[in-house]
Design a protein around this nucleic acid. Structure first.
Lengths: 336, 336
DNA sequence: AGTTTGCGCACAATCGTTTGCGCAAGTACA
DNA sequence: TGTACTTGCGCAAACGATTGTGCGCAAACT
């Protein structure tokens, strides 16, 4: 069954495509189409359950009502939550979203970006994976509205950013641990190519320093993965003078740390306290329930979509937004 | 910076659009374009970093190289895992994916489907939410290739299906519990509008019966949600003669059950054993590690994409595939 | 009777590709 | 010089929508 087109409907109604188009887009009155014709067209379109071809529309109008989402991996609770928000929010505004995964690989990032651009998306929300901002030059040259979400490039100021105030977040985390009596606080970081890890680590270091504590030897880790975190934590725990608390800079890092702690036969929080980034509904079910720094996932998705759409609609000033994290106190930090 | 088009390149090269098109699609030879012209075009296109407009291509060719994914919610580990597989697999075959969420609401399902069809996706992978298969009539009438993933309609046989053998899965689960000595086995199900829940419940009942056990009073639940499962489990545990083991028919149901068990002050598996559906990397970190029935997520995504593409390419026979689940034994089931 | 005005709609261009068909100029051969 | 190919490429239609312009006709004026 071939899909109906303006043309096929026009034929059935005995009028021209333009008339059908105008009726269906509600411009019947301003183009002085008679009520009789209008009704006829409406009827015919209704029974055919006519849907205009978005493709033809896009070609004509130069927009696709589609936003591209470039994300490391949807299979990660933080990213999937934010993706979910973005999809819902985009739809509210009449946008579809097509997603591409980078797997944290810069080549995939470049390729994904090309695919998105070739698909003529109206704008892009990207959580960059690579360290080189040059990946986004093509996007900039073509003037495709873009907002960086969560991660961004510190040296680029003409692309919009929506992120968490990660520096503040890390400081909050350290402050909480210190207020609970901890002084030997280890920190397991992610890939230092990413700002999030760098900024969080900086927050950690500065906070430690301002409490008069030593940070340098307690900061380990090189990847946002369970395996890497497992190794780093193990090293940390085998130290002569191991930390009494560990700050995990992401949910995956948390998991690696937990595994390593379990293997050592240690218990949380009795033997060691732990505080993680990235809240997650499952954290309430881990044993013990994990105290964490929650990023404002919903607000992040919301703002990302909103600012992207503002850009698409012609807003010109670029904005850099750093939303406030919050501390969710549960049971994984012991007072000592 | 306006994007380059065939036309703009043609002008720069002093030849026609058709020539440029043919060169760039590698048909230079068969259309007898001279090497000189070919090189000239290739050069110009290279320096402009020309990307053909997929929209124009789609309009002309009648395909978008896009597959639509209709999913209850990406913010659920089972669905996000499968989404991730689908996105990757689709890209391998040169397809993009645009996703729509239903939130388990039939109205959203219908709307999402319309949106996808209007976007002229080449095919649709759907995890249906509603109970009425009529939602898919429009899709069928238009002849859009579709495969139902995970969930499907038992009364419809002309749409392809890729799912788990849920009946077998439930039987495996019960058999395992029985082999561990359990005889009072409760089961918390999801929304019985969905086949998955119905078939799993049937498997549970039949397995119980074939072991000579009572199932009827031990089967509760009405929704795939933490809250609903929490309520059902609580009721079950307040029974005079509570179960010694609980079979949770999804990961969300597991969480509700755990919460309820925790509140009762019971311990898993000492006081009560639990076996869940839907494996998840976090299950290794719950305390205790959860024994579960794992669906072949990767294979499901893979097969869904493969059969959809086969359909798109013109394959006609419809297939119904029920992949084998596997039992992952961890620590949440005690021998009694 | 001639001119204006308003009504109801159709024509045709346009967006960027792909592709069937055919044309002009060159070469070969008789 | 005429016929017959070959070479190299352009023309134009088509995909399905949107939209500025203008045409034909009748009623209402002057």
């Amino acid at each position: 069954m071939a899909t109906d087109t303006l043309d096929s409907i026009a034929k059935k109604c005995g009028c021209s495509v333009s008339t059908v188009s105008r009726v269906l887009s509600g411009k019947a009155h301003s183009y002085r189409i008679s009520e009789k014709t209008e009704k006829r067209v409406l009827e015919e379109a209704g029974r055919a359950n006519y849907q205009p071809s978005q493709i033809a529309k896009s070609l004509r109008l130069g927009k696709t009502d589609t936003i591209g989402l470039l994300i490391p991996s949807i299979d990660d609770t933080f990213f999937s939550s934010i993706t979910s928000v973005i999809i819902r929010e985009a739809r509210k505004h009449g946008y579809k979203v097509v997603s591409a995964e980078t797997q944290e690989d810069e080549r995939n990032e470049l390729e994904g970006l090309s695919t998105l651009m070739a698909s003529n998306v109206d704008g892009i929300i990207a959580i960059p994976s690579g360290e080189k901002s040059s990946v986004y030059e093509d996007v900039k040259r073509r003037g495709i509205p873009t907002v960086m979400l969560d991660r961004y490039y510190e040296d680029i100021h003409d692309i919009d950013v929506v992120s968490t105030d990660n520096y503040q977040a890390a400081r909050m985390a350290v402050d909480h641990l210190v207020s609970m009596g901890h002084r030997r606080i280890g920190c397991v970081q992610g890939n230092s190519d990413t700002v999030t890890s760098r900024v969080r680590a900086r927050g950690y270091r500065d906070a430690m320093k301002s409490h008069g504590l030593e940070a340098s030897i307690m900061l380990k880790g090189s990847e946002f993965s369970i395996e890497s975190s497992y190794d780093s934590t193990r090293d940390m725990l085998s130290d002569n003078c191991p930390p009494t608390a560990i700050l995990a800079l992401s949910n995956k890092i948390l998991l690696g740390a937990i595994r390593s702690i379990q293997e050592k036969g240690l218990r949380v929080p009795e033997d060691i306290s732990i505080l993680s980034f990235d809240d997650n509904s499952l954290f309430n079910f881990l044993s013990p329930k994990i105290t964490c720094i929650a990023q404002p996932v919903h607000e992040m998705g919301l703002k990302a979509v909103e600012t992207l759409i503002a850009k698409i609609k012609g807003e010109t000033e670029t904005s850099r937004m750093f939303l406030s994290p919050s501390l969710v106190i549960r049971e994984s930090v012991k007072r000592i």
